[in-house]
Design a protein around this nucleic acid. Structure first.
Lengths: 373, 373
DNA sequence: GCCAAATAATTCAACCAATAAACAAATCGA
DNA sequence: TCGATTTGTTTATTGGTTGAATTATTTGGC
């Protein structure tokens, strides 16, 4: 992750890598580990761990826990944990019927949470983003009053986003080529924050990843007004070459089926969209099952997580989907595909957005230490 | 690639990384670069480059070219190139109607090539693999007579392969749970070689990668008796969690269509398999187009390479496939999907197999230097 | 109540790899 | 033949990890 393999490695990179290794090891440990435990589990020496941990403590990323959990003979170990009062991530979401902002600290705890329900469709993009910016500013202010330092901001959008953060199309918002980062910078209280924009399903997948465990591999499918998917492989989000992967809503399910507003025919969205779902249409589960089978045959993902509206209707959909998976996935007989409902519900995208920011800090603590001085 | 990010980094790893960086930079350069040119392009110092290059030359991976291509003032630069007489990769392929083995040197040149045409279906797996082993032994012998050192062996199989090299199912060969590496070790002349087994489409994709350029992203689709696909992202092959990705042949195209031997209905293989193709069936192109659209919608791949029998019939299939891609790929209007025929034809898999071995050497020259002493 | 055993964390000399800057080598142009 | 120019090497320095020895802090036995 630090080394895209086409880049030279100097001594400082190895320090940066090992700092990230330690920070992530602490983050993924069940109990607060000691320096010695970190040494054995990472393979670094105790001396090295001590030196690096000192830096992380000085930089406010790790804290030494006061009450040493004593056991057996020997000097008691000092437990290490992520600091709750340190860098934090600001996550935002704009969707058809609400705006949301939340702040997550380094430990992953949600510290602030603001929502504003209102139909965004009549609003022009600049107005909607200004309103969202104000909501984000409130969240930031409240978080910083608690001693947090917001390290950056991520925005979830139901549409296609280019790597630069330009929203190319967001059909359900009626957006086209909206420069979201620039518009958000119009709100002075958050103008200094680095902004990342990403697809709603991608960020929701990251949100579920936090719950699923660090190394998980799964396909997250979100049934909002549109249907999107986020693919997580070994704990990393796969975005595709241009950031447009996961457009499962327009996967063809019935080649000569109903016409879709995208110009094609028989898209999944026509059979398993929110209207079909609430109308209790019998085709929804089968159509989803067919589309998901395609994904599994292509990608060999062992788990599918259903989010958004699908999470609400999970029990009703389950059997129908699983029938198709059993029939249509070639390797179903060799290893089963796990199907489960999302655990975060409609919060997944905002949570994932905030999470993606602190993920950035956890993966490059050296950068944070440099900036924080 | 060297750093799975959950592993500590020591000084030796940074040397290993930079050795690989230099070797790959030489490999991907159009003209033989000088040490100074390597320094500027990689970002390392001239001193560091010199030291590392000395090691690579001593280890027989690089050669200094005799006639310095002189230009302008200053001391003339000594060009560096991969050695043709060094480590080599042995690639093998077993398919329904032939066996093949080939040896590729570090520069990517094919140095030996053996084929044996015979229907493998009546043969039991041990017999077929013994025959293949003998063919491989001949190729190795001939290569070593030319001064090459075979570093390892890779085998392409038309079936599902587990990471350990076990062939779980190869329907067209009638194989099930065949321990190919163990059976190949039965041939004494190649028993010492490390063996890797992989799916035919995956390795063919690697073969095409060599031709496509180092950083390419594409989906390779092979129309053999079965239909498989190999996904290459930024020059890396994606194998899926269990190595079973790319089973595009059993993607559902027509949900209530023809029954397939896999137990499902309407699989791509029923409409675009080799029989359909040679029978000049009109559905082949449309079915392919529908399946490929699914892949592009899910994965956002900018290029599709058609191999095997599809390469032969490319011109006839092209228009029909492109029509479906235009209709069914959501982002087709934002950025086109390139469709082209494979350049290596039926050789892709063996070539890719041999290539995967030397790719291993190029990505870990430090390991090779250690072994070679 | 004191000492040995055990475990945690730190200190310090050694080592390894890259860097920067000076230096040597080889060529061109005047 | 001499300066300019570019390539490649040498050498002292720096940054980072290692390994062994050392210090710190606890438990348990006598």
């Amino acid at each position: 992750m630090i080394n895209p393999s086409s880049v030279p490695v100097r001594q400082s990179s190895i320090r940066a890598h090992n700092l990230a290794l330690l920070l992530n090891t602490v983050a993924n440990s069940a109990d607060p580990p000691s320096r010695a435990a970190l040494a054995t589990v990472t393979g670094l020496t105790r001396a090295t761990v001590s030196a690096l941990v000192d830096d992380l403590i000085a930089g406010g990323l790790l804290t030494e826990l006061d009450p040493p959990p004593r056991t057996g003979a020997g000097r008691p170990a000092a437990g290490l944990a992520l600091t709750a009062a340190g860098p934090a991530g600001l996550g935002c979401e704009i969707n058809v019927d609400y705006l949301a902002a939340c702040v997550v600290d380094l430990t992953g705890a949600v510290r602030q949470r603001f929502t504003e329900h209102a139909d965004q469709r009549p609003a022009a993009a600049p107005d909607a983003l200004a309103a969202l910016g104000r909501l984000a500013a409130r969240a930031r202010l409240a978080a910083e009053a608690e001693g947090l330092v917001v390290a950056g901001m991520a925005l979830a959008v139901p549409g296609l986003v280019s790597p630069a953060g330009l929203v190319r199309v967001a059909p359900n918002l009626g957006w086209q080529d909206v420069d979201a980062p620039a518009l958000l910078r119009g709100v002075p209280e958050i103008a200094d924050l680095p902004v990342v924009v990403d697809n709603e399903a991608n960020l929701a997948a990251l949100g579920e990843l936090r719950v699923a465990g660090a190394e998980a591999t799964f396909l997250y499918v979100s049934g909002e007004i549109g249907i999107g998917a986020g693919l997580v492989i070994d704990g990393e989000l796969y975005r595709g070459v241009r950031g447009w992967s996961g457009e499962i809503g327009h996967l063809t399910v019935y080649p000569d089926g109903r016409p879709c507003r995208c110009g094609s025919r028989g898209c999944l969205e026509q059979y398993a969209g929110q209207e079909a779902l609430t109308a209790d249409e019998p085709l929804a589960a089968a159509a989803l099952g067919i589309a998901l089978s395609a994904a599994v045959n292509l990608l060999d993902v062992p788990m599918i997580v259903l989010g958004g509206a699908y999470a609400l209707h999970f029990e009703r959909l389950r059997a129908g989907i699983e029938t198709e998976l059993r029939r249509r996935v070639l390797t179903a007989g060799l290893a089963p595909v796990t199907l489960r409902a999302a655990r975060l519900g409609t919060d997944a995208a905002v949570r994932g957005a905030a999470d993606s920011v602190i993920r950035g800090v956890r993966d490059d603590p050296a950068g944070w230490l440099r900036r924080a001085g």
